[in-house]
Simulated scan of single mutants.
Amino acid sequence: MLRFRKVLIILFVLQSVLSYSQKILSKKEKYKVIDRIKELIDTQYVLANKTEIINNSLDSLKSTKKYKNIKDYRNFAEALSEDLVTISKDQHFKIQYNPELVSSRREERKRWQELEQIGEAENQKEVFDINYWYSQKINFGIQKVEILEGNIGYMKLTFFDILQWAQSTIDAAMGVLANTDALIIDIRDNGGGYISASYLASYFFDEKPTVWNIGYERPSSLRDTTYTYREIGGQRYLKKPIYILVNKKSFSRAELFAYCMKHHNKAIIVGQTTAGASHGIDFLEMDDNFLIQLPITSSIHPVTKTDWEGIGVIPHIKTTKEETLKVAYTMILDELIASEKDQELGRHYDRLKKKYKGIKEKTTN
């Protein structure tokens, strides 16, 4: 019965996202939402030195009556989102109108609190989870694994999923690629995700844990150090060329993966400068109708002592979007040719290089 109810709630929420509300947004609620945004920015936004500027700018926009004639809830959310990104230059800011999601989140919290009180929370872990179901459908972000001519591995990642869900799939993918002579990891158009990025990266480090990244969370003032994993589920991929493909749509956790691999000297980055969105977020309810995606954490790389916010991950090799894969592939062949002692195999690599230079990459980037 619980499973059936959960599915009904999910379907209701999904349906609501596709339809526009006919409710009229009042002036009182608009100002209440803006004041709540300012409060959250003041107390939780990761860059404390920018909070006053952002909030003063919101006050200025409110006084110019920019939002006066906006009566639609979604249009108001979109306008606020655009203004927050423009003012702060932080691409993680987003306001969402979704009263059904607010309600379902509250109901879910209440249900789990009740289950915990009666000691039944552990028994509900098997309840259908729409997020896990969707993650399975996209293979936990691993879209493609193949071995290109010349024994060069290729992995296309569209998302870094929750490690608990994705670990066995990552291990399986790296098992396929274990005996290749070089590896291309394609994170173009990858929108980010979770800490499975550091688990995948652990395949390229030895067993001794290395500081991967340091996160600072403003609300708690805590620093959280992420290390590479001592134990992984497969053979480590060491002392082989690794190339990572990026573009301007490589975002957030995908950028973290490229940035850390670059500055730990584990990979060559090829492509276009990434989005420049380094901050971690929380998703908070503001009232019965609106939620805010609020940046609350920053990254501190152990080598650079900074992050890529507003700058992006700058590739070692900049290319046009059409040439990215071809450039990485031919550079790998050059490395293999230079390192190969077997003359016949070296000639084989050279033939592949000449062949591939004539192929135009098909891309939608």
Rank of each mutant, 00 (worst) to 15 (best):
Q44N: 02
I54D: 05
W112H: 10
S220T: 15
Y97N: 04
I244W: 05
T324G: 11
G280K: 08
L163Q: 02
L84M: 06
F251N: 11
L291T: 09
E100C: 07
M1Q: 01
I54W: 01
D186S: 03
N98V: 10
S168T: 12
W212Y: 15
E82I: 15
S103Y: 14
F140K: 06
Q136W: 03
Y349H: 08
R5P: 01
T304S: 07
A267W: 10
S57C: 06
D287P: 13
L14T: 00
L333E: 07
Q15N: 03
I24E: 04
D186N: 05
S339N: 15
Y199P: 06
S16N: 02
E78V: 14
S221C: 03
S198M: 10
T43W: 00
R347A: 12
W308F: 15
F140L: 08
A172D: 13
E146Q: 12
T225A: 03
Q164A: 09
N179G: 04
I317A: 02
F290L: 02
L148G: 02
K89L: 14
L157N: 06
K357V: 10
N365T: 13
Y132K: 13
S168P: 03
S104D: 15
K65E: 15
F12A: 04
K66Y: 12
E122C: 06
L101Q: 15
N56Y: 07
Y216V: 01
K360E: 12
Q143N: 12
K318L: 10
R223L: 07
E340L: 12
S135P: 11
I34E: 00
M286V: 00
Y349G: 07
E340R: 08
T64S: 15
L148A: 05
N151T: 02
K355F: 14
N179Q: 11
F4G: 00
E52L: 09
V211A: 02
T273N: 10
Q272P: 04
E82H: 11
I292D: 00
E344G: 07
K137Q: 08
L333H: 09
S196Y: 04
E361M: 13
H301I: 11
A258M: 04
N55V: 04
Q22H: 03
T225P: 05
S299I: 13
M331W: 04
K30L: 00
G312L: 03
G192V: 07
K89V: 09
I269P: 10
S135D: 13
A178H: 07
R106H: 15
V46I: 06
A77P: 08
S57R: 05
N213E: 15
Y229E: 12
L18I: 01
K71E: 12
L58C: 03
Y31M: 05
I170L: 09
I332T: 11
A79L: 13
H279W: 09
V85S: 08
K144M: 06
N56G: 10
Q15K: 06
Y199S: 04
D206C: 02
F257T: 03
R105H: 11
S103R: 13
T226L: 09
Q96R: 11
S278W: 09
V211P: 00
A79K: 15
I170F: 08
T210V: 15
K239P: 08
P295N: 08
R236Y: 04
D129M: 04
H348E: 15
T273E: 08
F290D: 00
T274A: 06
D282I: 13
L325Q: 13
L115Y: 13
Q235E: 14
I281C: 12
T228G: 03
